[in-house]
């Protein structure tokens, strides 16, 4: 049996500079040599670099719209500059504190509940022995991803309707209380999380299943020969194998921290739960709908991106410091 790799903690996974494996002297080559070493690699990079230059960086000048009162008809050249007006308006608005705390709470719930859920389900799927069953469950749980939020929200209204929704009826019978799920502010976040988990968990497992599929089978055999039980195998082989993916996914998710999603929240909001439901994404919509606030929504988007950048750099720094995986 050839053991080409040892479990992840000892493997230089996702490393850039971290010297876990003692650097071989051959690695330290001059810049010129390194450049010349593999011209094909640079050739392979070219289409991608061109893509980023054309479709990502060329349009980037659009960010300046956040500092204008942009009107499409006048164009960027003709629209008046307003400096940081939109940001001042956002930060000094009477709703800013509420928007921020609502957004942060949902973002936090997303990270602690919605993020780990697919990992757990993927690990559970990985433990299934019957392949047919595994395939069936995988296919079933990934279906909701294909239903739009409009449909999911329609179903939510159907199931949680006051007094008549099947889930409401069941809940009322079991707990002997009359709950108005859709209007009660206390139930807003649990409902949002339930929707998110229902819609996204199965889809989210795919990436971890792919990571699990990449695990060298020999590792399991070796572990088994060493007398490792099932849970020990999970702990020493499976989990280390997906850890780099989990960390990268976590870092990337943190970058979108303030994106709580517009449609989902908007469709579950009503006059009675709005105090907990208003987030940046829905606020932008309301500002934009009458205001044509192209500039204002660009400004809020920019604010969210900057926050995302700070968080992602922080997360990456932590990951690099304490684990083996990082972006750079």
């Amino acid at each position: 049996m050839t053991m080409t790799t040892t479990p992840a903690p000892d493997v230089p996974v996702g490393l850039d500079e971290a010297p876990v494996v003692p650097p071989k002297p051959a690695r330290r080559r001059s810049l010129l040599k390194r450049l010349r070493r593999a011209p094909a690699l640079y050739l392979m990079l070219l289409p991608g670099l061109a893509y980023f230059a054309i479709f990502k960086y060329a349009p980037m000048y659009g960010i300046t719209i956040a500092f204008q009162n942009y009107l499409p008809f006048l164009g960027m050249g003709g629209s008046p500059w307003v400096g940081f007006d939109h940001f001042v308006r956002l930060f000094s608005g009477p709703d800013f504190g509420r928007l921020l705390s609502n957004t942060l709470i949902l973002a936090f719930l997303n990270i602690v509940i919605a993020f780990p859920a697919p990992i757990i389900v993927a690990l559970m799927l990985n433990e299934l022995r019957k392949q047919m069953l595994k395939k069936f469950i995988q296919t079933a749980i990934y279906i909701p991803h294909f239903l739009s939020w409009a449909i999911v929200s329609g179903l939510t209204y159907l199931l949680f309707a006051l007094d008549i929704g099947p889930i409401t009826v069941l809940f009322n019978d079991v707990f002997g209380t009359r709950v108005n799920f859709l209007a009660d502010p206390d139930w807003f976040r649990p409902l949002i999380m339930a929707q998110t988990l229902w819609k996204g968990t199965g889809w989210g497992t795919i990436i971890y299943l792919a990571a699990l599929a990449g695990v060298d089978k020999n590792l399991y055999e070796a572990a088994e020969l060493d007398g490792a039980g099932r849970f020990q195998q999970m702990r020493h082989v499976t989990i280390p194998a997906i850890t780099p993916t989990v960390i990268i996914m976590l870092i990337l998710n943190i970058g979108n921290f303030l994106d709580t999603g517009f449609e989902q929240i908007y469709m579950l909001t009503n006059s009675l739960n709005r105090e907990v439901a208003d987030v940046f994404d829905t606020y932008v919509y309301f500002m934009g709908i009458t205001n044509g606030a192209y500039s204002y929504s660009t400004a809020i988007g920019l604010f969210k991106s900057v926050v995302g950048l700070v968080l992602i750099l922080g997360a990456n720094w932590l990951a690099k410091r304490f684990t083996q995986s990082s972006l750079f």
Binding site: D95, L272, M287
Partner: peptide
């Protein structure tokens, strides 16, 4: 109104409904 109308209207809609709901 062009700037803030949607948010302002929301105040009326919410207040009205909260009154009807007894809040």
């Amino acid at each position: 109104y062009t700037q803030n109308g949607a948010i302002l209207d929301q105040i009326v809609v919410d207040a009205r409904l909260k009154f009807l709901a007894g809040q």
